[in-house]
Simulated assay, not measured.
Amino acid sequence: MTDKLLPTPRRMLSLDALRGMDMLCIMGLEDVIRELAHWCPTAFLEKLAEQFEHVPWAGLHAYDLIFPLFMFLSGVSIPLSMDSRLDRGDSRWDMWRKILTRCALLILLGMVYNGVFSDKPVGPRFASVLGQIGIAWAIAASLQLVVRDTRKRVAILVGWLAATAVLQLLVPVPGHGAGVLTETGAINTWFDRLFLPGRLHGGSFDPEGIPSAIFAAAITMAGSLVGTFMKRPDAYSWKTVGTLAATGAAAVLLGWACWAAGYPPIKSLWTASFNLLAIGIATLLFALFFGIIDVARCQSWSFALRVIGMNSLTIYLGSKLVSFPDMSAFLFGRVVGPAGDAAPLLLLCGVLVLEWLVLYFFYRQRWFLRV
């Protein structure tokens, strides 16, 4: 495999690579790590496997950042694509129509992913991961389209986070009061029980419900600000990496301070403290990948990740429609059988290999599923 088929050098390869790393966890890397810890139960592997489990409610594990990181990266892409269209003279009304269309399609695909149109005996769930991405992206893209002054958009982001905190901490919820950040007492959960149709993913709450999607838009908005910063002529420099790292560290410290003050990070509620931590960590990861891949130009190692990142929606939907574990068992089951206790681990690795080969085939054919 070579990089001959890669896009033009001006494409930000680190963006595809980091998105690919994020999607790799969804594709099955987390299962491989858990099974590896089960097969070889060392203290390090057990701690690592613990990081690939969601926290029960309040707190933060690495696994809780996979979805926010994708939202952040979708925001980074907004100015890189939208501003060039504005520069070409595209109509703002046409772009606004495309924003709404993309949002609607993602909501619809999320419903399809949840099986809303299937004959499952359980009630339909309308809220979804893709739906939340669509809503948050539409908010951030609309802001990018309407508010061209970067400082104003920074102020709006700060206000968005502050408003989230005010609503969650100071607005009383009927029957519970203010600042009750529980599965039944938070303003997110109360609103969804009252207004969100269909089944709620958490029973009494939905982590991708209406308020959550709106609150989480802060992460995509932050990504769009980073994308705007990356459009500077001198962006491909170590100075940019340092600025991104400092900004990310500041957001992490601010999120940690909110946590220490009694406002914990809760992914299911998308609290402002969680959003700050997610924004900070995502920015730090982006700075790391950007520095290594686009500034130092150490790129060959990231090819496998870029293949995934350039077709992230394909594998997200494909893993739901195609049983890759069954394919792995069918193709490799007899081969890995003699491995004994290691056989389940090898079959999970086979799942990743098969998924990547499908994406590589799509990559070679230039088939990219985008909405």
Rank of each mutant, 00 (worst) to 15 (best):
L317P: 00
P68D: 01
E50W: 12
T283F: 09
G185I: 11
W367V: 09
R34V: 05
A261K: 12
K120N: 13
D87R: 13
V154E: 01
G333E: 07
G59Q: 08
D87M: 06
A62E: 00
F368Y: 15
D326T: 10
R10A: 10
R102P: 05
W301P: 04
A272K: 09
W259T: 12
N275D: 11
E46V: 11
G340F: 08
L161V: 05
G203V: 04
R34S: 11
T42C: 15
I99N: 08
F362L: 15
L276P: 00
L145M: 14
A296E: 11
L225S: 01
A246K: 12
S237W: 05
P172S: 12
D234N: 09
A43M: 05
V146C: 06
L130C: 12
G198N: 10
D31H: 09
D94L: 14
C40L: 15
V122K: 03
F332E: 09
Q51K: 14
L100Q: 10
P265Q: 07
N275P: 00
R11L: 11
L143C: 09
L269D: 14
A217R: 02
K267P: 05
I219E: 02
K231P: 00
W96G: 13
W39E: 15
P172V: 11
F229M: 09
H176K: 02
L321Q: 07
R92L: 10
K239E: 05
F44N: 04
F290W: 02
A222T: 06
K320A: 13
L29R: 02
V158R: 04
A136T: 11
L6S: 11
G227F: 00
L253A: 15
G198R: 10
N188M: 01
V76E: 03
P344N: 11
R366E: 10
T184E: 11
S204D: 12
G209H: 00
W160Q: 04
W137Q: 02
F229S: 02
L288Y: 06
